[in-house]
Amino acid sequence: MAKITSLKDMRPKTKTFQLHSALDKDDLLTDANDQPIMIEIVGYDSAVFRDAAIESARTELNSEVKDTVDPMFRAEKNLRLAAACIVGWTAPEVLGEYSKERALEICLDGDLKYIVEQIQEAISDRKSFFAN
């Protein structure tokens, strides 16, 4: 049984993970100074994700796109939600200075799909956002 001392203990936290190569999960990516490239994210249970999902639903309702079940429409929606979960990173010389706009650019860049896959995998590990 998990012991808590306050309801604040039950709030989801941010999580940081190290990026790895697109070809080999054991090949961790580092910057020019040999420092690990880390991405900080929030998960599905965060207020940030909830707000992004609500905004996405509003956009979808107001969309001119007739077929919102179109796979391309859904894929872009998922990429936008993944980008919203990024709250920071190290190695600005590699990824650029952190901003929500830059996070979205990275997620929408098809050549960086391996980064998005790692972000989505980390986000889906809900339990890790609550661990002490």
Results as ranks from 00 to 15, higher is better:
2 A>G: 08
101 E>M: 09
11 R>D: 02
47 A>E: 01
102 R>E: 02
96 G>M: 06
67 D>K: 07
71 P>V: 04
19 L>T: 13
97 E>Q: 15
19 L>H: 12
120 Q>L: 06
115 I>W: 03
24 D>A: 09
104 L>V: 07
115 I>S: 08
114 Y>V: 09
41 I>G: 12
31 D>T: 12
51 D>Y: 05
86 I>H: 03
49 F>Q: 01
94 V>G: 10
121 E>H: 09
128 S>Q: 08
31 D>G: 09
127 K>F: 08
106 I>L: 12
53 A>Q: 08
2 A>C: 03
11 R>L: 14
88 G>Q: 04
2 A>P: 03
111 D>N: 07
8 K>Q: 06
61 L>R: 15
57 A>G: 13
10 M>G: 10
44 Y>F: 09
20 H>V: 08
24 D>F: 07
72 M>D: 00
34 D>P: 06
24 D>P: 04
122 A>F: 06
27 D>G: 05
99 S>G: 14
67 D>C: 06
119 I>D: 00
89 W>E: 01
11 R>N: 10
48 V>S: 04
107 C>N: 02
14 T>S: 09
22 A>D: 00
117 E>Y: 11
118 Q>V: 15
56 S>R: 06
67 D>I: 07
54 I>A: 14
122 A>Q: 11
28 L>I: 13
66 K>G: 10
15 K>M: 10
35 Q>A: 13
95 L>T: 13
112 L>A: 08
94 V>I: 15
75 A>E: 01
8 K>L: 10
80 R>K: 15
35 Q>V: 14
